[in-house]
Amino acid sequence: MKDVQTDLGYTTFRDGVRSCLPTVLGYLGIGFSFGIVGINSHLNLFEIALMSAIVYGGSSQFVMCGLLLANTSITGIVMTVFLVNLRHLLMSMTASPHFREESLLRNVSIGSLLTDESFAVFSTTVAQEKYFSLRWMEGLNVTAYITWIVATILGGVVGNFITDPEQFGLDFALTAMFAGLFITQFQWELTKSQRKAVSVVVSVGVSLYLLLFFVSSSVAVIISALVGCFVGGIVHDNK
């Protein structure tokens, strides 16, 4: 990608930082609530920071706190985290072809820091048919990573005084961020093919609701996302 002409605003590391900024507030809200929940789940600041740095997955970290409090076995917790985070496999499969020309090390570093939110920002950029550089992607990823770690530590610091982040509506930052990211993506897909976009969303919604009866919500997310991909792939374009 180094030799490819990139679009203005998608070239430098700084551009990546700028592209990440709209999601920063969401990360802060969620990370802050996580820090509070972590402290109240008897984790110390070091454990909170370490978890954010090496697991780096919002929902899985909340789930881990719940399981730690419930005294779940080590294997039980690790298995659950695996399932909750398995969706990254699909996101990495989608993102990786765009970085084929880069070195293995760079590919691994991009994959290591891929999150729902950075994937969403990346996908919107792809949907807009913008050309971006590796440095841009790195700026996006690293900004999110640092913000997340700092936010969870800050949450941990105040967590001794606040026990319930929900009363401030902070937990809703996750839903609000997904809503905003989804709507941005949806609007782009609508401009390409209304029929496809609507079919995909309806099939995901119906399958997710039905699947929640049979499997855990993290597995339901993966299967319903695959159903959405399948429906999108077979519905003919009809602008």
Partner: peptide, 27 residues
């Protein structure tokens, strides 16, 4: 097929946060 993953997974993640789910019960 993966071209539709961003749209699909973002909607699935959004809906997941909306429901109180327990296997064997309607969400």
């Amino acid at each position: 097929f993966l071209e539709y993953l961003p749209l699909s997974i973002l909607f699935a993640l959004l809906l997941e946060t909306v429901f109180n789910a327990k296997a064997g019960h309607l969400a």
